[in-house]
Simulated assay, not measured.
Amino acid sequence: MQKKRYNGYKSFEYLEPGVDYRPFKLAQELNRVPSRAVEVTPEQEERVKRIFQENLIISLHDHCFVAPENLAEFFEFRRQGRDWTGYEGLSVSGLDCVFDNLMNGTAMITSRSGWKWDDIIYDLGMRLSDIAHQDMVVLATTTEDIVRAKQNGQIAFVVSLEGAAMIENELDRLDILYGLGVRCLGIAYSEGNQLGGGLREPNDGGLTVFGRKAVKRMNKLGIAIDISHSGDRTSLDTIEVSEKPVFITHAGARALWNSNRLKPDEVIKACAEKGGVIGIEAAPHTTITQKNPRHSIDSFMEHFEYCVDLVGIDHVAFGPDVLFGDHVGLHHTLSEALSIAASRGTLEYPRVEWVDGLENPSEAFPNIVRWLVKHGYSDEDIAKVVGGNIMRVLKEVWYR
């Protein structure tokens, strides 16, 4: 893929390790594991390159940080409050824009449970401080920022958060988050909160009265709403209450694999009918299927094609939800903290060490586009699912 204007910058290189912060050995950003590229002909690869050059390439959901190599150090790593962005990997990702979800509930600077207001603000400020010291990745708060980033050989960074537990019962905290650059916010992350039910709750009571007020405030502010981790009832209520389209930024179809982490047809259809978009998820052991129980780009794209058949090409995109480092190992480390086990379901499936073809942000979209080209999708349809559909929603939802 065409490289961005990357000058070799590494996170926090303006500070002195061991003096200004505690250093950790980080995972390798590129070629950490032998994940395979989708095989295409030379002619098809040329078409792939042209698609990247001519169209906006947007990830609806990722975490572009670099994990520590030794995951036993992860909680101490997080308590330092610094995340290393994978600039080298991003420079060859082909991305023009990424909805980056920071560290969300694992920003555990002041607590052991995450999702605290102080932790989220700390996490956000530290990440944006680092981004401000380089010029390849730029904070984006408008659709014009995204277009401009591509024109300038940069990557637009859209600040997103997967759950709203940290606003507690303070509606004006949404305004504060907006003022600090947040442009996409989830209702609940697995566990229920003041707004509504998460996907792990045994009884999802739906959007609360406060949650309804929060949805309306987000509409007024211009914050895109994400229901990826919300319970089914809360998801449907949010779609109904919102005056604007909403995102399912990273999920798949429960019809293909019976996991609460995936969405039932009813929710996917309701999202599309309101004009929204579902981004297909690639985090380990999520978008698997009965046909392809071993997680790979093939099972991932089976979810994509199912959703396209269900609601049409105008309502599907990609939110891979990948990172730089051992994602499977990180899930084991954070299983309890992020309710991962509770959302997986009870069906047995073969575990993988990494998701072949979708291991990290540097390879996800190049392989997605290769797969689409190889399987006969038109340039017009590819342009929609790799960015066009997302931009359409943003022009309706964001203030500008």
Results as ranks from 00 to 15, higher is better:
Q194C: 11
H332Q: 15
D172Y: 05
A383M: 01
I368Q: 10
I368T: 12
T143S: 09
F99Q: 07
N367H: 08
F210W: 09
I57N: 04
E73Y: 01
G196N: 05
S296Q: 05
E336H: 08
P361N: 09
N7C: 09
V48N: 02
I390K: 06
H295E: 09
D265W: 01
I187R: 06
D321F: 01
N203G: 10
N31D: 14
V267Y: 02
V147I: 14
A164Q: 08
S362F: 00
A317P: 02
P320H: 09
H229I: 11
S91D: 08
L30S: 12
K4R: 15
A149Y: 04
I57Q: 04
N258F: 05
L124A: 05
I167D: 06
Q194E: 14
V369E: 12
I340Y: 13
P284D: 12
A253T: 04
R173K: 15
R148F: 01
L236I: 09
R47Q: 15
W371P: 06
D119H: 01
M218S: 02
A37R: 13
L334S: 01
A364L: 08
F300S: 10
V267G: 03
R212N: 07
V98P: 01
S378I: 09
I227T: 12
R400N: 11
K263H: 11
V33K: 09
D145G: 06
D314V: 05
Y87D: 06
G197V: 03
A149P: 08
D226S: 11
Q290C: 00
W371M: 07
G279D: 11
D326F: 00
I146H: 03
Y14W: 11
F74H: 08
Q53F: 01
S259V: 06
S335L: 02
V137Y: 04
K116W: 09
A317Y: 00
C184Y: 03
L199W: 01
R400T: 14
I280L: 13
R370F: 07
C307H: 01
A255W: 00
L180P: 06
D204W: 04
V40L: 03
V322K: 15
H250A: 10
V246P: 03
S242R: 00
E359C: 05
L330P: 01
T85C: 05
R82Q: 11
N292S: 08
E13M: 08
T143H: 02
C184A: 11
R5N: 15
M218W: 00
K216G: 03
F12G: 08
S93M: 04
G205A: 08
G163W: 00
E170W: 03
G222W: 01
R47P: 06
G86M: 06
L358S: 10
D326I: 00
Y349C: 07
N258L: 13
V48E: 03
F210C: 12
E348I: 04
D119W: 00
R212Q: 14
S129G: 10
L161V: 13
L372F: 01
A67I: 05
E281R: 12
L358R: 10
G186E: 06
D381C: 03
L338F: 10
F12P: 07
W115K: 04
L338A: 13
L30A: 05
F157M: 11
L236K: 10
H295F: 02
L256E: 04
E144C: 04
E201N: 13
V158T: 11
E240K: 13
H295T: 09
T208A: 08
L262N: 09
L124G: 08
